[in-house]
Nucleic acid binder design. Sequence first.
DNA 1: CTGTTAGCGCCTTCAT
DNA 2: ATGAAGGCGCTAACAG
Lengths: 332, 332
Amino acid sequence: MGKITIEEVAAEAGVSVTTVSHVYSGHRPVNVETQRHVREVAVRLGYRPSAVAQSLRSSRTHTIMIVVPDITNSFYPEYARAVQDAVGGSGYHSLLCNTDAREDEELAFLDEAISRRLDGVVFTGFRVPPTALVPLEEAGIAIVNIGRSVEGKAIDSVRFDDRAAEAEATEFVLDRYGPSVALIYGDESAPVGRERRDGFELALRNHGISPSAAAIVGTAFTRAGGVRGMELLLDRGERPRAVVCANDLIALGVMDVARERSLRIPEDIAVVGYDDIDAATIVTPRLSTVRTDARKLGAVAGGLLLDRMTGAIDGPGRHITIAHEFVVRESA
Amino acid sequence: MGKITIEEVAAEAGVSVTTVSHVYSGHRPVNVETQRHVREVAVRLGYRPSAVAQSLRSSRTHTIMIVVPDITNSFYPEYARAVQDAVGGSGYHSLLCNTDAREDEELAFLDEAISRRLDGVVFTGFRVPPTALVPLEEAGIAIVNIGRSVEGKAIDSVRFDDRAAEAEATEFVLDRYGPSVALIYGDESAPVGRERRDGFELALRNHGISPSAAAIVGTAFTRAGGVRGMELLLDRGERPRAVVCANDLIALGVMDVARERSLRIPEDIAVVGYDDIDAATIVTPRLSTVRTDARKLGAVAGGLLLDRMTGAIDGPGRHITIAHEFVVRESA
DNA sequence: CTGTTAGCGCCTTCAT
DNA sequence: ATGAAGGCGCTAACAG
C-alpha cells in the first residue's frame, strides 16, 4: 500500500505510463474508455501520484511558507487563514512557521524555503531586514514581504502605515487626556516597533511635547510584555494619564495590572491598543484601538503571491498599503 | 542561483558527487581538507541540497501535517505550537491545515498527506471517523489522533475525558445554582460535541433530572455560535439559571448577549465554558471553565508521533488521556 | 490516440 | 578515503 507507482498501474491496466500520467493531468486527450479503465485500476490498487516525484520533475511544490513571529497572537492566525484562503483555491498548501521573533529562526526558515524549493513565501520579519529575502528571489521563489519593501527586486510588499496609525492613536489620547502619556512597545529592532514608536513621538512633537519627556518602555509584543512594561512604569513612580500600547496584547497586560492595582480605566488611566484582535471586544472596558484588518492583509498578500506564482505578474515589486482606522471604544 | 546541483559543486570542487553528498550527510568519513574545500565551493556557488530530491530518494519528507478544525480558536494555535516544538527539534516541519470542521476538507487533507508522502499526521477530526486514518497508516504514515482511537491499528491517540469533564462542570453548576440549566454546544457530529453533551446529560441524571427537561441547543463552536444559541434560548422564553457551554468561544458569545440584554453574570445567569483559552481570563467576569491543557496535549501528541517517525516505537497504538481540571472563577 | 525514453537531484550500494 | 552508476516516481519531448 502507498507504494503503488504509476508503472504498476500502467502494467495492471495494460497501457503505458504516459497514458496513466495523462489521464491524471489532462494534458492530452485520452480515450474515454481507457480513461475510465485506468481510473478504476488506480483506485483498486490504491494508487496515489507521488507529489514528491511530481515536484522533482516539475520543480513546483505547490507549497508556500507563511512566516509569522507569534502564532499565539490571534492577529496572525486570522491573517494566515486569509492567506491560505487566497492561495488554497489554486491548490497551494502552506507551511505556517513561527519564529518567536528570533533572528536565527527567521533565517532558518528562509533557508528551508530554498531547500524545499517552495513556490512562495509570505514573510513577516521582526529581526531580519527585507534584504534577507533576496536569495529567495534569486532562487525563483515568489515573495511577499509584510512591511517595508526592498528596492529593485521582484519582491512585493503589503503593510499598514504603522507610523501614521500610531500617531493618530496618540493624538487622540493627547487631545482627550492631556500630555501625560506613555508608550509601551515591543522593541526597537522590530520594524513595527520602530515605526509605531516613531508615530508616537511624531504625535508628541506635533503637540509641542518633547519625546524625551515621555515615558517609553520596550518589552515584548505579548500580554506578559504588557504586564512587565506597566509594572516597570508604575514601580518607577510614574503614572501617566494614558498609555498607548503598540499592540493589543500589550494593552491586555496593561489592563491586567491596572485591575490588580485597582486603577480604573479610563478614569484613572486610559489605554489604547493596536490591531483590534478579538480580545479587544472581550475585555471590559472594551479596548479603543487601531483596527488593522488582518484578513485583508492576508487576502491581499495571498493575491499578490498567487499572481507571481502563476506567472500572471513578473515585473518589479508592487507595494500596497492597507487602510487602518482608529476605533474608539471604552478604554480611552 | 537556486539551480546549482550537487553535480556542479562536485565538478567545481574537482571531486565526485559521492564525496559532496557525504560531506553533507556525514555518512562516511571524508578527508578534512577535502571537506573544507567542498563546503567552500558550495557556499560560493550558493548550493542548497534539494529537499525534494532527497525526499524522493529517501522517501522521508521530514514534514508532518497538523489538522485542526479552526485555527481561529486560540486553543488550536497553542496546541499546534506545542506539537511543532515537540517535533521541530528533530528537523520536522509542519503543514498546519484548517478544516473549518468540514468533512470534505478533512478528507482532502488526509488525501494530501498520502500524496505528499508526509512522515506524520496529527489529526483532530470533527466530521470524519478515526477509521478514515487507516489508509494513511497503511501507507506507512505515523499517526496520532486527537480523540478516540481505532482498534487494532498502529494509530496512537491522545484525548481529554470530555464526558467526565463536562459532567463535572455541570455538577458544579447544578450544586450551586439548582436544576435550571441549559447546554449550548457545537453539534452532534463532532466527537467533542457528542461527548460533552453526554457528560452534561450524565450529570443531570445523577441529580435526578431528566435530560429531556433541559434546554439543549446546538449551533457552532464559535463566539457567533454562542450568540446564536443564547438568543435562541432567550427568545424562546426560556431563561435558565445557568448555561454550560461546550467551549469558551461559545461562552464568550453567551456573555455578549447577556451584556447586551443587561443580564448580570453570575447573579442573573451563570456561565461556564470549556478549554480555558486566554480569553477566559480576559472577559469580565472571568470565566469559570474546564481547563484542558492545550500545550500538554500538543506536546504529548508530538512526542508520540516522533516515536513512530523515528521508529523508536512500532507496536500497536498507545492511548493517552490527559488530565483536566475545573477552574472556578467569577462567571459561575 | 498511444508508447518509449531521457532526465529532475540526490543517495547508496558496489568497486577500487 | 574516493568514484561510478542505478534508480526513487513522474512528466514531456519525441515518435508512431
